[in-house]
Design a protein around this nucleic acid. Structure first.
Length: 299
DNA sequence: CTCCAGGGTAGTC
DNA sequence: GACTACCATGGA
């Protein structure tokens, strides 16, 4: 069964910039990227869809295949892609602030149309946040690949093998020693298994966050063992649709601020606060653009 | 060998 | 609340 959906691209959206961010130079086992498209498996209401997104004449073109589309498949896929690329947000206020920034203003041109790329699934997002703590991203993607290839499901289409992220039930049933064998640290292994258990017994789910205030979302997240301030903010901006987040202490963020000459000392919290206060309400976007600035285009 | 990487917890004062 | 020790492991 095949579905094609067209979405009109909003202002201040550039698909190529978004694709490039997804690619950077990292090896994400959940995505297939070509120069002009991205493909992945998405689970919607329990059914797996293979989505391929590309663009044509100002529209995003989504091609989806599945065995059994439900009655609202088209709408759900549209919602998914819309959330993935943050399509519904009007970025004009952020760009106004950005253009007036004497140091970072160039980003409004250089990265024009880059959107905050989301992670739809809360379980996947939390696991990725935990995996990424305190290790370099190259290694983090390796760990993720091992976990996904061993414990996720695989779907084949046109000779490609697609992976789904492991289900909480699967991770909950693993032992710390098993994950240590994949080179997860003892602590991370424990965090992941514990979080998987929270999803499995129903005490943690994305829908519980829907009506919470931003501070309440962060509070609920940091109450979970293994999730500190950094991880909670990362999850809030990538998965819970919050754009006022600052993953404090983030190594990449601090590096970007140093490279732009905005701070000289990584412990200079006052200066960092001052920078972010100018972007109040758009902190997540500033962070995203600063992360983007760390990746250099080689072509 | 050293320092760093998209940190977190637990203990102390 | 701020500071400290400790954890843990690949990459440059």
């Amino acid at each position: 069964m095949h579905i094609q959906i067209k979405i009109k691209q909003p202002p201040l959206f550039n698909f190529e910039e978004c694709l490039w961010f997804l690619n950077r130079s990292y090896d994400d086992c959940m995505l297939y990227l070509t120069g002009s498209s991205v493909s992945k498996v998405v689970s919607i209401e329990g059914t797996d869809f293979i989505l391929t997104v590309n663009e044509k004449a100002g529209f995003l073109i989504i091609n989806a295949t599945t065995a059994q589309p439900g009655p609202y498949a088209t709408e759900r896929i549209r919602d998914y892609v819309s959330a993935w690329f943050d399509l519904e947000r009007d970025l004009s206020a952020f760009y106004k602030l950005l253009r007036n920034d004497p140091i970072l203003g160039y980003m409004a041109g250089a990265y024009k149309g880059l959107r905050l790329i989301g992670i739809a699934e809360l379980f996947e997002s939390i696991c990725w946040g935990i995996i990424g703590q305190q290790i370099n991203l190259t290694f983090a993607y390796k760990l993720k690949r091992r976990l996904v290839e061993l414990y996720g499901e695989t779907i084949q289409e046109h000779g490609r093998i697609y992976h789904t992220f492991p289900r909480p039930e699967t991770i909950a049933g693993l032992s710390v020693e098993t994950l240590q064998g994949l080179q997860f640290s003892k602590q991370k292994a424990g965090y992941l298994i514990n979080v998987a258990g929270l999803f499995t017994d129903g005490s943690l789910k994305k829908s519980s966050f829907a009506n919470l205030a931003p501070e309440e979302k962060l509070k609920s997240l940091t109450a979970i063992k293994g999730i500190g301030v950094w991880t909670a903010n990362y999850i809030a901006m990538k998965t819970l649709n919050e754009i006022g987040c600052v993953p404090q202490g983030d190594a990449g963020l601090l590096k970007a601020l140093e490279l732009h000459g905005l701070i000289n000392d990584r412990k200079d919290l006052a200066t960092i606060d001052k920078i972010f206060s100018y972007y109040r309400g758009w902190e997540s976007y500033l962070v995203h653009y600063l992360w983007r600035s760390l990746a250099v285009k080689t072509e």
